[in-house]
Simulated assay, not measured.
Amino acid sequence: MDDPVDNKPPSFWQMLHSVMAAAFGVQSGKNRARDFTHGKPSHFVILGIVFTAVFALTLFGIVKLVLHLAGI
């Protein structure tokens, strides 16, 4: 299923997993080989930008919530 020699492009969930793993620095060599062999760079760039925006907005929301609850 996740064999890097498989000629299918990675699914959305596989790409999302790869982007999240790469963001935290824990991408496996097998998945990286699959992504570089069969993935389209534009898909990973777009998904990476969306992931970064959602991650930053989530952190912003958590900080706002904590500050609100602390009465600041």
Results as ranks from 00 to 15, higher is better:
47 L>D: 04
8 K>T: 10
7 N>R: 13
41 P>G: 12
28 S>P: 01
57 L>M: 10
58 T>M: 10
10 P>Q: 07
62 I>Y: 15
33 A>Y: 07
16 L>N: 09
8 K>V: 06
70 A>S: 11
22 A>F: 11
63 V>K: 15
62 I>L: 15
48 G>P: 00
61 G>Q: 03
43 H>Q: 08
34 R>I: 02
27 Q>M: 15
35 D>C: 12
44 F>R: 11
20 M>D: 09
52 T>W: 09
41 P>Q: 14
48 G>W: 01
10 P>R: 04
9 P>A: 04
42 S>V: 12
26 V>Y: 13
37 T>C: 08
15 M>E: 03
51 F>K: 02
53 A>F: 13
9 P>E: 02
21 A>L: 11
3 D>W: 03
65 L>K: 05
37 T>G: 11
29 G>R: 10
36 F>R: 11
29 G>Y: 03
53 A>M: 13
30 K>L: 11
53 A>L: 15
22 A>W: 05
48 G>C: 06
17 H>A: 10
71 G>D: 14
34 R>V: 01
60 F>E: 10
19 V>K: 01
40 K>H: 01
25 G>N: 03
30 K>P: 00
19 V>R: 00
55 F>W: 10
2 D>I: 08
16 L>P: 00
5 V>T: 15
10 P>G: 06
38 H>D: 01
9 P>V: 05
69 L>F: 06
56 A>D: 05
38 H>G: 00
6 D>P: 00
16 L>K: 05
52 T>Y: 07
35 D>I: 15
43 H>E: 02
65 L>I: 03
49 I>M: 12
61 G>F: 05
44 F>Y: 15
11 S>Q: 05
15 M>P: 00
16 L>W: 07
59 L>G: 14
52 T>Q: 13
13 W>Y: 12
45 V>H: 06
20 M>K: 13
17 H>P: 00
16 L>Y: 13
9 P>M: 05
39 G>H: 00
26 V>A: 08
44 F>D: 02
19 V>Q: 00
54 V>D: 04
71 G>N: 13
29 G>M: 09
60 F>T: 06
40 K>F: 00
19 V>P: 01
58 T>I: 08
32 R>W: 07
70 A>G: 05
22 A>G: 14
3 D>Y: 06
66 V>E: 09
32 R>Y: 07
67 L>Y: 11
65 L>R: 06
19 V>I: 13
61 G>S: 13
13 W>P: 00
10 P>A: 14
27 Q>N: 14
15 M>T: 02
36 F>S: 12
32 R>C: 08
54 V>W: 05
71 G>V: 11
55 F>A: 15
19 V>A: 03
71 G>S: 14
23 A>G: 14
11 S>R: 04
16 L>D: 04
65 L>N: 03
5 V>N: 15
10 P>E: 01
42 S>F: 09
1 M>R: 12
66 V>K: 08
13 W>F: 14
23 A>K: 13
14 Q>C: 05
51 F>E: 07
